[in-house]
Design a protein around this nucleic acid. Sequence first.
DNA 1: AACGTTTTCGGAAACGTTCTCGGGAATAAT
DNA 2: ATTATTCCCGAGAACGTTTCCGAAAACGTT
Lengths: 336, 336
Amino acid sequence: MKHITIKDVARKLKVSVSTVSRAFNDKYDIRAETKELILKTAKEMGYKPNPIARKLIQQRSLNIGILVPEFINSFFPEVIIGAQEILIEKGYQVLIMQSNESAEIELKNLETMLDNMVDGLIVSLCSENKNIERYKSIIESGTPIVFFNRVIEELPASKVVFDDYKWAFFATEHLIVQGHRDIVHFSGPKNLTLSKNRSQGFDAAHRKYKISEGKKITCGFSMEEGERVALELIEKNEIPTAIFAASDPSAIGAMKVFKEHGYRIPNDIAIVGFSESSLAEHIAPPLTSVSQPTGDIGQTAAKLLLDQIETTGLFIPQTIILNGRLNVRESSIKVD
Amino acid sequence: MKHITIKDVARKLKVSVSTVSRAFNDKYDIRAETKELILKTAKEMGYKPNPIARKLIQQRSLNIGILVPEFINSFFPEVIIGAQEILIEKGYQVLIMQSNESAEIELKNLETMLDNMVDGLIVSLCSENKNIERYKSIIESGTPIVFFNRVIEELPASKVVFDDYKWAFFATEHLIVQGHRDIVHFSGPKNLTLSKNRSQGFDAAHRKYKISEGKKITCGFSMEEGERVALELIEKNEIPTAIFAASDPSAIGAMKVFKEHGYRIPNDIAIVGFSESSLAEHIAPPLTSVSQPTGDIGQTAAKLLLDQIETTGLFIPQTIILNGRLNVRESSIKVD
DNA sequence: AACGTTTTCGGAAACGTTCTCGGGAATAAT
DNA sequence: ATTATTCCCGAGAACGTTTCCGAAAACGTT
């Protein structure tokens, strides 16, 4: 009552194992009729080639691994769906793992993927990125890999990123144009390129309008982090007139705390988020935020990866920068 | 420059392949010193047992597959994280796939998981569930599997579900107690047990208070579906005084449309959702919703699965019903 | 010294495939 | 009729492990 193997099929039809194999892999010489017969009876017998054995000998799996730091917020799921669209069409299956922002789990996940002989990887790093050396060795070994969103510059691999600098600039400019001169930036985790870029965009906007540099506070991406930092500001009584947060959840967390303490949004404090989450337009007041083309990010990452997989010989890593949009909503516009 | 295999290690140390294998699988007779030596030089050489080959011969992978219909909303991710906590601790790795509510993709995902020889499956069905026969055959073949949330009664497997009937009853009762007599239920996809249960809870509450049966409209779980049904009601000018939606996104979608058309929530229309999403408490007005113990669901599912994996011989499927909470917020309470 | 036991190891078969090689039969060409 | 060509197919090695079987070595017992 065990698995039906290629041998069973061969025996039943009194043909050789190789012939059965040929029937399942078109590329070999086999008479059309025999092929048909084999395929038919194989189906009847419930035979299906064992992919593990196939992987062992072919060294490919038609599986792609996607590694993300979290997927509570809709950002990563949306990216994944975008990537899946492309990959499934090409016959690949997508395996997803999440590290819950833990470098340790990230590493384990990574090894599991490699163990499963994925043909390629699409990864977004967790905020405490300690596995750079491992990634370097993977890249060196020739495993196709593309990074997105949470990226490290020094890794010589393809990347698809967002123009964080530019859109942080626009977001900040928007606040400045509204008349704000005392803006605090909730910046993301320090070791991410993305945090640095957003932070620099924030500064650049100040420079353009010749305003003294705004204050910056390091703040994680989560709602809790936003709440924490907002409370800190309230306790120190250093309330700015506007906040530019590096993520939507942290913006929303902050908004919640401020509202609870009697501040009115946007009249007392204007708030702008980043990385449009599905919440943005539904919370009160609706949150101004920079939206990223999540689907596109996934799709281009998938395409880059497929390119690399199909390229024999030297592959030259590319970095693709995608554009976004500033969705202006009530949280940043003074109303009377 | 290829992979380092067990043979390379054996050759270098002038021992047999089996001895090296023994060093990596404690259970066999091997002298402590030889083992140490082998492990040491293996590490130096960068050797790691190839899990594909191991799977082929051992027929197990220490991988668990989790199949969900979507993960844009935080519900499924939260469940997954709960399951992961338990599984990782036991040495299992978790592979996740999502079907985007498509039965076809669900089936493909399922086969991929099986292809990868997962030791067990945790699955929540997509709304158009057409793969029941396949699941039956999987269960029959003895593959450990547990279903959660989106469940089909007739499948003889372990399940962890929510007491949808009870909490739909409470949610409806809450609206009735607020004085509502004209409540519309946005029920979920018809073929899900969960929809039926919620719908019956809705009816039961009406019966208890001797109110004529409320109107029910089939509505998907997504925001778009909620918007669609709300528009329908507006066009037909059949505006109820309250809505009990089978999901938060559909409640939120409806709320959005009603607000855009000038209806005030909750004064003109009270709304209650289901399956607390992270949005609920942040939208305007905050949404009354039934919250499910997402983490618990994942954990119990994982535990049930591990039980089944470790049980040799006959396994008796269990169904575990978990409790929730009604979070009453402004969307359902008349204010003046 | 002869024999039994235990420890430690090597040989080789398995797991389920793919794929190269070579050969026989059928067909075409000379 | 002989040779060349094409078309099919079978044999068997390979992928990288685990694990059964048996044997050599070491040790203890009488």
